[in-house]
Design a binder for these strands. Structure first.
Length: 825
RNA sequence: GCCGAAGUGGCGGAACCGGUAGACGCGCUGGACUCAAAACCCGGUGCCCGAGAGGGCGUGUGGGUUCAAAUCCCACCUUCGGCACCA
């Protein structure tokens, strides 16, 4: 065989063969247990894949291949999250229709994925911007609509002036658009929402049932933001209604010395006294104009205006002044708060600035403070609270106050969530049209399921506008539609759906990707789902990963699926930075592509390095040198195989020393099989690779220096097992070597090697000898050595003796197989 | 500000349950090969002292628990990620 390892030739050969044999086609009919291994639905960017993306795909591919060798029927599909702003923006920049650029980008992604040897079943490829896919995205919208989970609402919404569309809450990060980083503003528009808040509690509870990174679960928990408190009604003199507030600390009610409404609160106009009207209006205007960044800043000083009105504190009938301030948010709770400056930092700041009274009602365990220098929000007991004085707060005090007010009907326990409904309308062209017709007579009417898809028209001018109207509104052909209910004239909804709608159900579609009768085949979904392993970046923690869970629960409630969580096990890969430690980006010109790495080092070296570079979840800087090291490792493997394949005879008879070396090789081999198996299953790819390297180093040493240690047949077995261990990670060389060794036609379905615990067991172990915890000597002893013998040997060891001399041993620690520690005085 | 994760050689990292710190790889370095270079092969490589045997120090900082701490506890520093007036 060729002595020189030529990765490119081998890789092209096997990629061709795999394609010819359709080697990665997954059958739905199989007696084997199933394994569904899924990568995050990628958006096919015009820049193509970088080695950073490979950090996602290579490890999942290794697991998919491992599972296949372990006898699983593996579903490992790929498809494209092809709708959306980036695709559209890219198309606008290039001056080419997104339909065209998307197809081009997909072809490039597909080519690159093949180039690095990913084992996708391309017969199941799905593309979210194709009508045969978005037809079912629209179907899902109708399902939500029928179940009362999709509704229209008007109000101030996040608007990105650069992307020229409305955004959902999750898609605004620190007052900026998550896509483009522009500062967002607010716009008054009627928009479609999905009622994800109905599922807040279940989304929270079911986090306990899934194997996801704690980090992600915590982020979702915080995002959902459950908080337990009470609603309390403050009376309004001369009015029938009351001012209701939400508080988590009803035990501080006696310290509520004023109230604050959000500037947008509906009662502001009615309550404002004539002499304050001018000041209040001015403040409302200013709050509306203010940029979100300014308004959200926690550093800025508190502002506000007194309405000139009072409410009645239900615990003591005291009149409390009502203010408005932008530190109270309109969208949370009731949009109004009772302010307890003594025990809330924000209220304290506000009260200090406007010289409002600060009354201590919770004393710290050490006793009441009287004058407060800052708000006290810790535990304690009630003071200045009438009959409640002395009660432990918040615990008992919370319950007592709510029960007391509850009996009078002016308070009730209440749970609030920070989670808001999901705003899915987008005023952009490149998305799935929302399947609704607005009829003058009937109002919004869903398009019947059998009339789907509502096709996205092939517009020539798809530029967005900043008036908040979708480009689709400019196409009269599209807009004109008969009402599905009464047949009268209607207007088609012109907003498109947030692309996160497409990616909220795609994992179902892979089970029956060509189904023309339904979004998915129920039996096939029940067979394949939930996804056994789901891998992608952590940046989708509160977007995609929350939405997809929501869709799954809706499908469950509607009886379409039996399970409520789509992804049983989730892992997040770390990012790869450029060699200089900076983020890889086209503008910085530091992007490393798989194309260039494959050309220089080969796909298998790239794959191995992707696995070896660092712990899977950890971010790390790229290093071309590192790939070279992996190539070196593969070349040495190639040489070893060549040597073994070409060796003649049955192998020399071993002498005793050689025989021991042979036993050692077999022991390391079995240990390595065990370690690589466990490491791959536990996502410890880096140590799996290093274990293989260690094994190879030892095998090479013995092969070169003491070939007679094993018979030629045994050497072939060793190399065969090494090939099997390597195959999931470096499949091309795996196949080639498999063939060279004369095994069956493909390593893909070869059985993953088993280890022999007896062969893996050590017969001699190193026991270290310490004196007062300091290492002084090492002993080689049989694993089953008796304690007394080891201690005696330890005491007599040459270097130990020097440190024991003239000292009294007060204690002897013995850890079998590990260490001896003499404590001396 | 709040929540979370992490700090180990020149670099990426290993050490799974408190028991040999630095596996494996990169880099560096000495040698072999070569007319020479690259590649490949052999050796060395935490820091300090020592010819060596060996010794001292060493896992962000300071303390503590323990026969024994990278690992457990307390306080602090730094970096990264998330949230950000959610009452």
């Amino acid at each position: 065989m060729d002595r020189r390892y030529d990765p490119q030739a081998i890789e092209q050969k096997w990629q061709r063969i795999w394609k010819e044999r359709d080697a990665y086609r997954t059958s739905d009919e199989s007696d084997k247990p199933k394994f569904y291994c899924l990568d995050f639905f990628p958006y096919p960017s015009g820049d193509g894949l970088s080695v950073g993306h490979c950090r996602n795909y290579v490890p999942t591919d290794a697991v998919a291949r491992l599972r296949r060798m372990q006898g699983f029927n593996v579903l490992h599909p790929m498809g494209w999250d092809a709708f959306g702003l980036p695709a559209e923006n890219y198309a606008i920049k290039m001056g080419v229709h997104p339909r065209v650029t998307t197809a081009r980008n997909i072809a490039n992604y597909h080519r690159q994925m093949d180039l690095i040897g990913l084992s996708f079943d391309w017969s199941r490829e799905i593309t979210s911007c194709f009508p045969d896919y978005y037809r079912w995205t629209q179907w899902f919208f109708l399902l939500l609509y029928e179940r009362g989970l999709a509704y229209r609402s008007t109000g101030q919404q996040w608007w990105c002036p650069s992307c020229r569309t409305i955004l959902a809450n999750e898609q605004v990060e620190q007052g900026k658009c998550w896509r483009c980083g522009s500062e967002v503003t607010k716009k008054d528009l009627e928009q479609w929402f999905l009622r994800i808040t109905d599922y807040a509690q279940r989304l929270l509870d079911d986090l306990g049932t899934i194997d996801w990174p704690e980090q992600i679960k915590l982020m979702q928990t915080n995002w959902i933001g459950r908080s337990e408190g009470a609603e309390v009604d403050f009376g309004l003199p001369g009015r029938e209604d009351a001012l209701t507030v939400f508080t988590t600390r009803p035990d501080t009610l006696f310290g509520a010395t004023y109230m604050v409404l959000a500037p947008e609160h509906p009662l502001v106009d009615e309550l404002t006294a004539p002499e304050q009207r001018a000041a209040v209006s001015a403040y409302q205007d200013q709050a509306r104009r203010q940029s979100e960044i300014e308004r959200l800043s926690t550093e800025k000083e508190k502002t506000g205006v007194f309405l000139g009105a009072f409410a009645i504190n239900p615990v003591n009938d005291a009149p409390v002044p009502i203010w408005i301030s932008d530190y109270v948010l309109t969208g949370y709770g009731t949009g109004a708060i009772m302010a307890v400056p003594a025990h809330d930092e924000r209220d304290f700041q506000f009260a200090t600035k406007f010289e409002l009274p600060i009354v201590e009602v919770i004393a710290p365990p050490s006793g009441a403070q009287g004058e407060l220098a800052e708000a006290y929000s810790g535990d304690g007991f009630m003071v200045n609270s009438g009959q409640f004085d002395g009660l432990a707060a918040p615990g008992a005090a919370f319950e007592a106050v709510v029960a007391w007010l509850g009996a009078r009907g002016v308070a009730r326990k209440k749970v609030n969530f920070k989670l808001r409904d999901w705003l899915i309308s987008r005023q952009r062209y490149w998305g799935a049209p929302i399947p609704i017709v607005h009829c003058d007579a009937c109002g919004p009417v869903p398009v019947p399921a059998n009339e789907l898809p509502v096709l996205l028209p092939d517009l020539e001018d798809y530029h967005p506008t900043d008036d908040g109207r979708s480009p689709l509104a400019r196409d009269p052909e599209f807009v004109r539609a008969a009402c599905p209910r009464c047949g009268g004239p209607g207007r088609r909804e012109t907003d498109t759906m947030d692309t996160f709608a497409c990616s909220s159900w795609y994992h179902f579609r892979y089970a029956s990707p060509r189904d023309e009768a339904a979004a998915f085949d129920r039996d096939k979904v029940e067979h394949w789902l939930p996804v056994d392993l789901y891998v992608g970046g952590a940046e989708h923690a509160v977007m995609h990963l929350l939405y997809a869970r929501f869709f799954c629960k809706v499908a469950q409630d509607a009886g379409y699926v039996s399970f409520g969580e789509p992804y049983a096990r989730l892992r997040n890969q770390g990012m790869i930075q450029a060699e200089d430690g900076q983020k890889m980006s086209k503008s910085k010109g530091n992007v490393v592509t798989p194309d260039s790495v494959v050309e220089q080092y080969g796909a298998d070296a790239l794959r191995l390095y992707e696995l070896f570079i660092a712990p899977f979840e950890q971010s790390v800087a790229w290093s071309d040198r590192g790939v070279q090291g992996c190539l070196r490792f593969l070349s040495r493997f190639w040489n070893l195989v060549a040597g073994v394949v070409e060796a003649q005879g049955s192998g020399a008879a071993a002498d005793a020393a050689e025989a021991e070396k042979g036993r050692r090789v077999l022991r390391t081999l079995n240990k390595t099989i065990r370690k690589v198996t466990h490491d791959l299953e536990a996502f410890r790819f880096n140590t799996a690779v290093s274990a293989l390297m260690e094994l190879q180093n030892e095998v090479l040493e013995v092969w070169a220096g003491a070939r007679g240690a094993l018979t030629l047949a045994q050497w072939r077995e060793v190399v065969t097992d090494m090939t099997l261990l390597m195959a999931p990670m470096a499949p091309h060389i795996g196949e080639e070597v498999w063939e060279l060794l004369g095994h069956g036609d493909t390593v893909l379905d070869a059985a993953w090697p088993a280890w022999d615990e007896e062969l893996a067991a050590d017969d001699v172990v190193t026991v270290v000898v310490q004196v007062n915890g300091k290492l002084r000597d090492r002993l080689e002893v049989p694993v089953d050595a008796e304690k007394d013998g080891v201690l005696a040997q330890a005491r007599a060891a040459a270097n130990t003796v020097r440190f024991l001399e003239g000292k009294q041993v007060v204690k002897e620690i013995y850890v079998p197989g590990k260490l001896v520690n003499f404590v001396v005085r």
